[in-house]
C-alpha cells in the first residue's frame, strides 16, 4: 500500500523473475550460446576475406541478436499463465501494466543485456574497427529493449495457443524490421565514417514509444487471455 504507481511491485517482479532464472540457468544460457554459435559460424563459412567480413558484420550480428532474443519469448508469460501466478497478478491491486513492465525489464536483463555485452567480443571475429564496436554495443543497448517490449506483445497475444512459438515469430518479426534497419545501419554508418548519431537517435525514439505503449497493449492482451 506504499505507493500508487507500484514501484515496489515493479522491484518485486524483477527480483522474483531474476531469482527464478538463477534457479534455471539453462534457460538463460541457451539464447547466448545460440548467438555465439550463429555469429561464429559465418566467418568459418565465408572464409577470411576481411573486407567481406567487415561489410556483413553489422547485419549478421544484429540478425543473430534479434533471433536469439526471440528464442525464449514464448516462455515469457507461459509459466506464469500455467501455474496461476499470472491470474494472481491480474487480481493484484497494483496496476497490471507495472507488473508487465517488470517482467519485460527482467526479460531484457536476462537476454538483451548479456547479448549487448557479448556482441563486441564476437564482433572481433569480423575485424570491426574499435569505433564500430562501440556503436554496435550502443545500438544493441538501445535496440534490444525495444525487441523485448515488442516481443512481450507477441507473447501475450499468443498465450495459451498451440504452436504459439511459431506464431510469435510470425507476429513479431515484421515489427522487428525497423529496429534491425536502424541498428545495423548505425554500425554501417560508423564504419564508413558518417557518424551513427542519427540512427541511434531514431532507435532511441522507437524505444521511448514502445516503452510507453507496449506494456499497455500487453496488459490488454493478457486480460483477454485470462478470460
Amino acid at each position: 500500500m506504499s505507493d500508487t504507481i507500484g514501484l515496489s511491485v515493479l522491484r518485486g517482479v524483477i527480483h522474483r523473475d531474476l531469482r527464478l532464472a538463477m534457479r534455471r540457468k539453462s534457460d538463460v544460457l541457451t539464447p547466448l550460446f545460440f548467438f555465439a554459435i550463429v555469429v561464429s559460424l559465418f566467418p568459418l563459412g565465408i572464409g577470411s576475406e576481411r573486407d567481406t567480413l567487415r561489410q556483413i558484420a553489422p547485419g549478421i550480428l544484429w540478425v543473430a541478436a534479434l533471433l536469439a532474443s526471440m528464442l525464449s519469448l514464448d516462455r515469457l508469460f507461459e509459466q506464469d499463465y500455467a501455474d496461476g501466478t499470472l491470474e494472481q497478478m491480474a487480481l493484484s491491486p497494483a496496476p497490471l501494466g507495472m507488473l508487465v513492465l517488470g517482467k519485460v525489464v527482467a526479460y531484457w536483463l536476462l537476454t538483451g543485456l548479456p547479448l549487448t555485452l557479448l556482441a563486441p567480443l564476437l564482433a572481433l571475429q569480423f575485424d570491426l574497427a574499435t569505433p564500430s564496436l562501440l556503436v554496435l554495443a550502443a545500438s544493441l543497448a538501445i535496440g534490444t529493449p525495444v525487441l523485448s517490449f515488442i516481443g512481450a506483445i507477441g507473447a501475450s497475444l499468443t498465450l495459451g495457443l498451440r504452436g504459439g512459438s511459431v506464431l510469435v515469430a510470425l507476429l513479431v518479426l515484421p515489427l522487428y524490421v525497423p529496429v534491425l534497419i536502424f541498428g545495423a545501419g548505425s554500425v554501417d554508418a560508423a564504419a564508413v565514417g558518417l557518424g551513427a548519431t542519427a540512427h541511434l537517435s531514431l532507435l532511441g525514439a522507437v524505444l521511448v514509444l514502445t516503452a510507453f505503449f507496449a506494456p499497455w497493449a500487453t496488459t490488454v492482451a493478457l486480460r483477454i487471455a485470462l478470460e
Binding site: S2, G6, G12, R16, L20, A82, T85, P93, A94
Partner: peptide
C-alpha cells in the same frame, strides 16, 4: 482469490513463494 492453479513457483521455496506473492500484491 484462491483458484485452481495454485499460483506457486516450483523452483522457489514456500517462504519465497509467499513473500513474492505478497510483494506482487503491493
Amino acid at each position: 482469490y484462491c483458484g485452481h492453479p495454485l499460483g506457486l513457483k516450483d523452483a522457489l521455496s514456500a517462504t519465497e513463494n509467499l513473500i513474492s506473492s505478497m510483494e506482487l500484491n503491493d
